[in-house]
Design a protein around this nucleic acid. Structure first.
Length: 213
DNA sequence: CATATGATCCGCT
DNA sequence: GCGGATCATATGA
């Protein structure tokens, strides 16, 4: 029997419940050529309603429409002029909550991932939200894809994680919510300053060579 | 190893 | 115009 897909009910909870529950599960992508690519989810971030950092905070637009749809669908957005990021929509329809999939550990289809990424080091294939989408060939076309009944992307039940670390979300200027979750000690977690909050850094004054008087 | 910078689109102010 | 839920590369310690 084939591995169990996560159900609609799994996603129909708050983003902060779903996010840690996604750690250790297996993200599967059925590629256009009939092969599979898969990665174990090792790092995620929750984005909820009433969350200024969320794309849904200022209401529904064409771009974030998938976030306001039913849970268990994919929300894919384009950013920085060159990268895609993918989220699993959570909560209730109309709520606007999602979990950003930030990093994974390559399990299947590694050769194809290397080709799409243009890298051969396993650690650099899925360790970051933009890297993950590129490795799994997820883009605009997958925005809104159904993770529960669809045939392009889904999540299968994986292994129970041992330890979970939490911290501030990457690139979010807000320190109250610790909504980033990762598998403690896992080498495939992206660098986004895990562990203790950023230590205070003294800005280095650029050294200026004095011009001859 | 660390910080710095350029790439390159698009949604929103 | 601005700056972003980013990444690869260059450069300096």
């Amino acid at each position: 029997m084939s591995p169990a897909r996560l159900s609609r009910a799994f996603y129909a909870r708050s983003a902060t419940e779903v996010a840690p529950a996604l750690l250790g599960q297996v993200l599967v992508r059925a590629l256009p050529d009939g092969t599979r690519a898969a990665a174990r989810i090792v790092e995620v971030e929750a984005y909820g309603p009433d969350d200024p950092a969320s794309h849904a905070f200022r209401g529904m637009t064409l771009r974030n429409a998938a976030m306001f749809g039913p849970p268990g669908h994919l929300y894919v957005y384009f950013t920085y002029g060159m990268h895609f990021c993918m989220n699993a929509v959570t909560g209730r329809p109309g709520e606007g909550a999602a979990v950003l999939l930030r990093a994974g550990e390559p399990l299947e289809g590694v050769e194809g991932m290397c080709a799409r990424r243009g890298r051969d080091r396993i650690l650099e294939l899925c360790s970051g939200p933009g890297r993950l989408t590129q490795a799994l060939d997820v883009g605009r076309t997958e925005d809104g894809a159904d993770l529960v009944n669809g045939d392009r992307v889904w999540v299968e039940r994986g292994s129970r994680p041992e330890g979970i670390g939490t911290g501030v979300r990457v690139g979010v200027h807000e320190t109250t919510r610790s909504w980033r979750y990762w598998l403690e000690g896992n080498a495939f977690v992206s660098r986004g300053r895990p562990g203790p909050p950023t230590r205070t850094r003294v800005p280095r004054v650029p050294r200026v060579r004095s011009t001859t008087p």
